[in-house]
Design a protein around this nucleic acid. Structure first.
Lengths: 339, 339
DNA sequence: GATTTTACCGAAAACGTTTTCGATTTTGTA
DNA sequence: TACAAAATCGAAAACGTTTTCGGTAAAATC
């Protein structure tokens, strides 16, 4: 019933715990004969080292924490998948917490992970997070931390991101290049950096092309849902019939808008061109298929873990780490929602 | 730099480690004065119990393992969210592993969780899993295990499921009730129990209504993708022009089919009625909106954790647990893809 | 004032592992 | 044979906590 321990093996073999431990870990100062004996018995007894004891002794758990705003979300679940896949390769397990876009929860969860003594932390910030003290504390404590996607620029730690501003610029420029004269923007919430950057990219593209930036053409949503897209599409038809292009912060909302435009007989891209963001798999499925910016979630997860891994290793070897900004490439995927 | 320990507090206060520990844990045999003193110092020093030591001593980690076939999947990520939300309430953390629908990986991961000594395990089986020895071993070891959604009926443990057969029966019956005479089925892979059950429910509904069951109307897919739906829709138009209803194993495939039918001018539901499965949020967004079976993922996750929690508590109190089958309600959500 | 009760505290063992360092045995060399 | 070198082993400490059990001091009882 009780799990077998080193002691059990040592006793039945008539040797010391030390030797058993060394034999199993391949230390050189144990003879081939006893090593073989130990390993064999360990296997037949199905010995598994007590992780709790190992953790206590080695002060590491081979476990990392991950805090993410929302799990039920195609982009984020892709990131999670990337993180887990990479972590598994390196023998790390990952504990996932969901902040639900709440700053308070995020703070509490960070604390929880710290008290569980995970070896490192990966985090994507909640929309509600405007204060970063909790993050700074983690770093000051010397615990490896890397942020991804939704980051805080001020905080001194490694980050894996895309250039949201550039990508948004590219998206908007594409609308301009294909003849759009009056371009609206469905933007994300106020606080998160990537919504800000995408908005800024949109604005800059307009100005660089000598087009007027009209704030009334910017529609801000808090929850990104299909229905928001439908609603904003209706608003556009009501309030701004002259709009002939829309850059949307995220595919799901863009698809909602397309659906509504389809319903109302607005022709895409003839009447209105639309560019989304993230290249969700449904964007190639919808009719017309959606031109969008590819946001490599899986890749981002992989890179984020890899960077964290480096920093955990560095910490173990008592080496200094200099924070690194890793920027992933985004590409414009041209489909049928633009000319 | 180093985290503060009970010893640190004890020394600065000039008392024993024992007393500090007891004070913090609210033992009655420590005076109010010292208790207050200890608690205050602990707070100012930001003392956090070393989880590794606690785990070792108490033989529990307040951590559970979760093995899931695929994370990037709306239903499963909803389940994950349900599990995590419930676990957090009870002070449990969850380690997530992804089997990628591979039996080999699933086995390895189960072993990994066991060696990490999680307090309990939640699992949804991979499509490739046909042998259940690895699961039986977990149970024989006395480690609480509950399966959800994709289960093995033979294995003696608690399970949280829906009645796939009944739900499929309801879906098919609805097609029949609305006048469909020749009903096809896009079914899931060969092995997983829920694909089998849904197929059986479909078949039984046909037979109960004195309709012929025609195996050539059953299209089996391995990967559930949008494209599979498109492809099968084409096949139906080629091979079985008389089909006027389809029960599809999963919404995504159904939506692929709808898209293709739309493209080809096949009218839904006039020419062909379609019922999906799972009530993915896009099924209310597509045109026409998809009639489907609601599969409560979040709820399933919650229930699965709750059951596991009961079993973990029972184990702690050395009480026997009798495996429980928890069946969640499914409802037919009528929309516009059926008459 | 003597005795019992209660309140409070701490020593020590235990959880299972890793690792250092010294001890012993074996082998090699002269 | 004597000695050095190499090979092999084990005792013991340490990681930080929890908990049992015994002990002392204070309070209560007579």
């Amino acid at each position: 019933m009780k799990p077998v321990t080193l002691k059990d093996i040592a006793e039945t073999l008539g040797i010391s715990i030390t030797t058993v431990s060394k034999a199993l870990k391949g230390y050189p100062d144990v003879s081939k004969k006893t090593r073989a004996l130990v390993k064999e018995l360990a296997k037949t007894l199905n010995y598994k080292p007590n992780a709790f004891a190992v953790n206590l002794r080695t002060e590491e758990s081979k476990t990392i924490g991950l805090i993410i705003p929302e799990i039920v979300h195609h982009f984020f679940s892709s990131v999670i998948k990337g993180i887990i896949s990479q972590a598994e390769k390196k023998g790390y397990l990952v504990i996932i917490l969901q902040s639900n876009e709440s700053y308070e929860l995020e703070k509490k969860q960070l604390d929880l992970l710290l008290s569980k003594r995970v070896d490192g932390i990966l985090i994507s910030l909640a929309n509600g997070t405007a204060d970063f003290k909790h993050l700074v504390e983690v770093i000051e404590q010397g615990k490896p931390l890397v942020m991804f996607d939704k980051i805080a620029k001020i905080v001194k730690c490694s980050k894996v991101i895309i250039d949201d501003r550039k990508a948004a610029y590219t998206a908007t420029q594409h609308l301009i290049d294909t003849g759009c004269k009056r371009i609206a923007h469905f933007r994300g919430p106020l606080l998160p950096q990537n919504a800000i950057d995408r908005f800024l990219g949109y604005k800059k593209a307009l100005l660089d092309n000598n087009m007027v930036y009209d704030p009334s053409l910017v529609y801000l949503f808090e929850d990104m849902t299909f229905e928001v897209g439908e609603m904003f599409a209706k608003k556009i038809m009501d309030e701004h019939t002259d709009v002939d292009g829309i850059f949307v912060n995220t595919d799901l909302v863009a698809i909602g808008a397309i659906t509504e435009f389809n319903r109302q007989g607005v022709k895409i891209p003839e009447d209105i061109s639309i560019v989304g963001f993230s290249n969700w798999f449904m964007s190639s499925a919808i009719t017309p298929s959606l031109t969008t910016i590819n946001q490599p979630g899986f890749e981002m997860g992989k890179k984020a873990f890899k960077q964290l891994y480096k920093e955990m290793k560095a910490k173990k070897n008592k080496k200094e780490v200099i924070p690194k900004i890793i920027e992933l490439e985004t590409v414009l995927v041209k489909r049928n929602s633009t000319k």
